[in-house]
Amino acid sequence: MTERVDAAERMLDLVIALSHTRHRMTKADIRAKVKGYGSSSSNDAFERMFERDKEHLRDLGIPIVTLTDAVHEDEIGYRIDTAAYSLPPIDLSPAQMGVLSLASEVWQDSAFASSARRGLTKLRAVAGGTTTAAPGVALRVRGPDPAMGELLQAIAERTPVRFTYRAAYSGETTVRTVEPWRVHARDRGWYLVGHDRDRDAQRSFRTSRILGKVERAGQPGTVSIPDQRPATPERVFHTSVRLAIRPESAAALRARGTVVSSIETPVGVRDVLTLDVSDVGYLADEVAAYGQSVLVLDPPELRDAVLTRLRAVAVLGGTA
């Protein structure tokens, strides 16, 4: 069985091939030589795949030009106009490279870690300098959720998707069929924006509330993405949280919340901190990392989530 090549890899190989061809590549050349096209089940399937990829690359600003041969004028070929595609010289200051180095650390625990490292290495190669982020400084931003890779590929292929989703306001779990348009970051989370076929309207979905695997629900090329950027989520649902924090600890939590009082606990005096969060699961990961320095007062679902994580760590450590 021929190994499946995802759309992003296939289009990258196409860009490389069309950039390095001496004159042009015909469709027959592309199907025979570019990884991912040879597995097409028929000429029509190849034509659809190639036309879709070609238009997507042009939408990204990659100048694919059409050429004919002086002898075989009816045989069309393609190549990338490298002169129009070349970037101007990149001149980044040490401070700018430091910011980019720091930003790349956002992705260090995600599926995009290797891509971030490669991109930063290439920038350093053309811009000069070896500036890195300050020692001990790291952005504490959670990377994309597991569903992100499938969603981005579905957007690139313009393919509808189906997934199980847990609503923020009710906790109800439903299966949704969506034509994906874009993803964006907001309120410490990632959102998918698209057309919900079940509601026949634009909807936004926080990717951390997608349960299980994202599945394809149609054929590639069947999703029409609006030219104008869709509106961001109209509502972001928040949960009120109360934490008991050891004095002079958990600075990141204190920066986002408000200390309203102090209480006496079996382990000493604690500051009572209140804050609103849009995803209890994300906060549970953070609170669990503080161990005994942070106790959850409310809500019960956050307390249970933190205890679940701490018990899992105890089992891994052989202490439970």
Rank of each mutant, 00 (worst) to 15 (best):
Y191T: 09
G257H: 00
T258K: 07
L151K: 11
A113H: 12
G268R: 03
Y165W: 03
S170Y: 00
A103D: 08
V267C: 06
V277N: 02
A70K: 10
L18A: 00
G136I: 00
A116M: 13
W107R: 02
R176G: 01
G136N: 04
S204H: 02
T132S: 14
D145V: 07
L57C: 02
A201R: 11
N43L: 10
L275G: 13
G129D: 02
D279I: 03
Q219P: 02
F46K: 04
T82H: 09
V277C: 03
V183P: 03
S40M: 05
V106H: 03
H56N: 14
T68F: 15
L295W: 10
R22E: 15
A250P: 07
S104F: 06
V277L: 03
E75C: 04
Y191I: 07
S208L: 02
F163C: 03
P63F: 01
R216M: 10
V175L: 14
T26S: 05
R79W: 05
S93V: 01
L307I: 13
G149Y: 03
L18I: 04
V106W: 06
A289D: 14
D271V: 01
D227E: 12
A83T: 11
S42T: 04
P300K: 01
V71W: 07
D304C: 10
T174K: 11
S262C: 07
E172G: 13
S39P: 12
I30Q: 00
R182W: 06
Y165N: 02
H238Q: 10
V126Q: 05
M1K: 11
R209P: 05
A312K: 12
A185H: 13
S40Q: 06
L87V: 08
A312D: 14
Y282M: 14
V15S: 03
M11F: 02
G218S: 08
A185M: 10
F112Y: 14
I155P: 01
T308D: 15
A252V: 11
V126C: 12
A84S: 13
M97E: 12
R197T: 13
G143N: 01
L295G: 05
S224H: 09
G143D: 01
D13P: 04
D69T: 06
V141I: 13
T308F: 01
S40E: 03
G317A: 11
T21Q: 04
D187Y: 06
S104L: 06
E248D: 15
D227I: 07
S114R: 07
P220C: 09
V106F: 07
S101R: 06
V126K: 05
Q153N: 13
Q96D: 12
A70P: 15
A284K: 04
L120D: 09
T308L: 15
T159E: 13
V315P: 02
V15N: 08
L102Y: 05
A113Q: 10
R235T: 14
A116C: 07
G77T: 04
A312Y: 04
A116N: 08
T68R: 15
L14W: 03
R256Q: 13
L12N: 06
L57M: 03
S224N: 13
R242Q: 08
V34T: 02
R188Q: 12
E301M: 07
D69H: 09
R22V: 08
T159K: 08
L92W: 01
V99K: 10
T21N: 06
I64V: 05
Y85A: 15
E105G: 15
V306M: 08
R52H: 14
A147R: 05
V296S: 01
H72M: 11
G171M: 00
Y282D: 15
D196V: 05
R254G: 07
Q292D: 15
V178G: 03
R186Y: 14
